[in-house]
């Protein structure tokens, strides 16, 4: 089927080559299909959610959505005009026009107002649980990488960490519920959520920290020890400072996980709805023992407990958009920082 070869090694189109190319195209298609799926999810939510979050006129951002609590949405016709109002606005409206009290209205819970308490709750959950996880995780990693010698005990610890990483998040939720909420009597509270989430990301933090500690060259330790530094001085002055940037960047991935998980906080920390903001407490101790609203749980609530229609869609997509954006930003910064760090620290 081809002209005679001009020389011995001239490349000839043949069946093997064609099938190779075809196979490569199949692999390529698989890769791009995955990307397309991811893009589809992002795209849909960004596109539809942007309508809630942004506005056409200044300040271009829907501030109500970010600064107010969720409310019920009322839709009714009054004097020939169609109105859509949040709960408070509707009550004020009724006072102004007493006749409106009698109109028939459709109402959808959580579909008006904003998601401010959820944002606050998520931020509090992330800060608390990451603090706990970082303290525990970094210390554990220091032990594993600096002090531990190979033996039964260490193998046991590593096995536990590996297995902990595979435990489903809902099981962490059950565990947190059984231990913190019931046994410790903390009820549904920030504290219970913090510990549950912290234990969940612990393997991530330990693994990340260990990797960063490993990246610190052995020479730093030997050099310091040979100068008569104690082990602790060596670790404190000559190891941890150089590992810290790596630990923190890798731990950002943990933040994404903590912020994104719903199952562990369902029964330990999250309320469907709560009127008070977290700092509205009588005494300081109550702060830790209160439940909060959280973004992921709010998405669960608005996507499963209220019907889907044009009125509820706004808050559903809007919340998902904000949440996805936050988590995506965290994850992206982690990936970018990690790549930067890898190229910067070459000892």
């Amino acid at each position: 089927m081809s002209a005679p070869a001009a020389h011995l090694f001239q490349s000839q189109p043949n069946a093997a080559r064609r099938s190779e190319r075809a196979t490569f195209w199949v692999f390529r298609a698989a890769t791009y299909l995955v990307l397309a799926c991811g893009l589809g999810v992002f795209g849909t939510i960004f596109f539809k959610g942007a309508g809630t979050v942004f506005k056409a006129e200044a300040p271009f951002i829907n501030t109500t959505f970010f600064t107010e609590a969720p409310e019920s949405l009322y839709i009714f016709e009054f004097e020939g005009k169609k109105h859509e109002m949040g709960d408070r606005e509707f009550r004020a409206f009724k006072e102004k026009y007493p006749a409106a009290a009698k109109v028939k209205s459709e109402s959808y819970v959580y579909s008006a107002g904003g998601i401010f308490p959820c944002i606050v709750g998520t931020v509090l959950l992330v800060i608390g649980s990451m603090t706990i996880a970082l303290v525990l995780g970094v210390c554990a990693a220091i032990y594993l990488n600096e002090y531990a010698r190979d033996g039964m005990f260490i193998r046991f610890v590593r096995l536990a960490i590996l297995n902990l990483a595979g435990v489903p998040s809902i099981v962490f939720g059950l565990f947190g519920f059984g231990m913190f909420v019931i046994s410790f009597g903390w009820h549904v509270s920030l504290l219970a959520g913090w510990f549950t989430l912290a234990f969940m990301v612990l393997p991530v933090v330990i693994t990340a920290s260990e990797e960063s500690l490993k990246a610190v060259p052995k020479g730093f330790r030997e050099g310091s020890l040979a100068l008569g530094a104690t082990k602790w001085q060596t670790i404190r002055l000559n190891v941890v400072p150089y590992a810290l940037p790596g630990i923190l960047t890798s731990s950002i991935l943990g933040i994404a996980r903590v912020a994104g998980e719903t199952a562990p906080i369902m029964f330990t920390a999250a309320y469907v709805v709560r009127d008070k903001l977290p700092w509205d407490v009588d005494k300081a101790g109550d702060f830790f023992l209160q439940g909060v609203m959280a973004l992921p749980y709010h998405i669960y609530v608005v996507s499963s407990k209220i019907p889907q229609n044009e009125y509820t869609e706004r808050v559903q997509y809007g919340t998902a958009f904000v949440f996805l954006l936050v988590v995506a930003l965290i994850a992206a910064s982690s990936i970018i920082l990690r790549n930067k760090l890898r190229s910067r620290y070459k000892w």
């Binding site: 799926c37 991811g38 939510i45 994404a256 994850a331 990936i335």
Partner: peptide, 23 residues
């Protein structure tokens, strides 16, 4: 592509669930 696929893993599952219901 590698970071992009890693990035997909950061989509919270509840958002995916919502995407399933809604779309």
């Amino acid at each position: 592509i590698k970071p992009c696929i890693e990035f997909i893993s950061a989509i919270p599952s509840v958002v995916l669930g919502f995407f399933g219901i809604a779309v």
